[in-house]
Design a protein around this nucleic acid. Structure first.
Lengths: 154, 154
DNA sequence: TAGTAAATGAAAATCATTTTCATTAAGGAG
DNA sequence: CTCCTTAATGAAAATGATTTTCATTTACTA
C-alpha cells in the first residue's frame, strides 16, 4: 500500500469538512506535491500543473498553497533563496518527519530522517521546557543545517 | 566590561583587513544592531539610523547588511513574515549562541539559550554524521520552535 | 432549476530587495 | 599637501515574488 493512499483519499473530506470544494486545480496541485520529493516553489508548481491544465493561474496556485498550509497539509519553508518552497506533509500530525540539509551556495536541499529519531527525543524535552517557561503552546519546529555541498566545494 | 567591547573595538580592523572602509553608515548600522535584542528588519534599521544620520539610504542599509552577513558578523533570519531580520553575532565564531521561539500568530520572537547546551552536544553529533554521509561541510544550523504565545492564545 | 457562496483567472497593485548610474569620499603614492 | 584610484553612497528605476481587486464561472443547496 503506497504511503500516500491514506492521505489522498482523505483530501476531499478534509476540504468538505471545512465547507470548501475539492476542485480540479486543488487536486492537481496536491497531486504534484504528492508526486515529488523536491521542494517546489509556487512558480514551479504552477508550471507543472500548467502542463495538464493550461487554464490554471498563478494566483490560484498561491491561494491554494496558502490554504493547504493553513489546513496543515503542507509545510512552507524559506531556505534563503527568496521564495517560499512547499512540501506535502505525507502523514499529517504523525511522525514520518524529516529535517533539511541546505547548501548555502547552490541551495540544493537534502532531506534526512536517519538522525531525526535521536533529535526528536531531545526536542521533545526542550519543547516541553520552553512551553512551560515561556507559556507557549508549541506546534512545531524547524531544524536545518547549512553548509557547502561537495560539488560547490570544488 | 560590557560584552560588546571586544567586538566593537574589532570592527574597524575587520573591515580594513578586507580592504574595506569602516564608514559612518556602517558604524551606525552596527551600533544599532549592537544596541538591541530585537530582530530588526532592514527597514527598521534604516529608520533607526535615519534619526542620527538622515542622509542614509535604504540601499546602503541593504548593502551593508549583506556585507555584514558575508563577513560573519551578522545573522540573517527569515521568520516567515516576508522580510529578513538581522541579528548581531556578539561573539563571532564562539558560543554565546541561542535559538528562537517564534509565535506563529504575532511573530513575536523569544531568544533562548538555556537549553542550547544540551542541544549543542547532540547537534554536533548529528552534524558530524551528516557531514560524512552527504559530503557536506557544515557551517551552521538553524533551530526554531513555532507555537502560539499566551497573549495570542487568549 | 434557481440562488448563493466559493473558486477562479487576469490584470493591477504591493512590498521587499536589487541594480544602475552618477556622485562623493577615503586612503595611498608622489 | 594634492592627485589618483577605488570604495562607498544615495536616488531612482528595475525586478521578482506575492497579494489584492474585480468581474466571471462553478458547485452545491434549497
Amino acid at each position: 500500500m503506497p504511503r500516500h493512499a491514506f492521505d489522498s483519499d482523505d483530501w476531499p473530506k478534509r476540504f468538505r469538512r471545512r465547507g470548501l470544494r475539492f476542485t480540479e486545480p486543488r487536486r492537481l496541485i496536491l497531486d504534484i506535491l504528492n508526486g515529488t520529493n523536491e521542494h517546489l516553489s509556487a512558480e514551479e508548481i504552477y508550471l507543472a500543473v500548467h502542463k495538464k491544465y493550461p487554464g490554471i493561474g498563478l494566483t490560484t496556485v498561491y491561494r491554494t498553497l496558502d490554504l493547504l498550509v493553513e489546513m496543515g497539509l503542507v509545510h512552507q519553508f524559506q531556505f534563503g533563496d527568496g521564495r517560499s518552497r512547499y512540501e506535502l506533509i505525507h502523514n499529517p500530525g504523525k511522525p514520518g518527519h524529516h529535517h533539511h540539509l541546505v547548501c548555502s551556495r547552490c541551495k540544493r536541499i537534502i532531506d534526512y530522517d536517519d538522525f531525526v529519531e535521536e533529535e526528536v527525543e531531545l526536542i521533545r524535552k526542550v519543547e516541553e521546557a520552553l512551553a512551560k517557561k515561556h507559556d507557549f503552546s508549541i506546534e512545531g519546529h524547524l531544524i536545518q543545517f547549512y553548509g557547502i555541498c561537495r560539488e560547490c566545494r570544488e
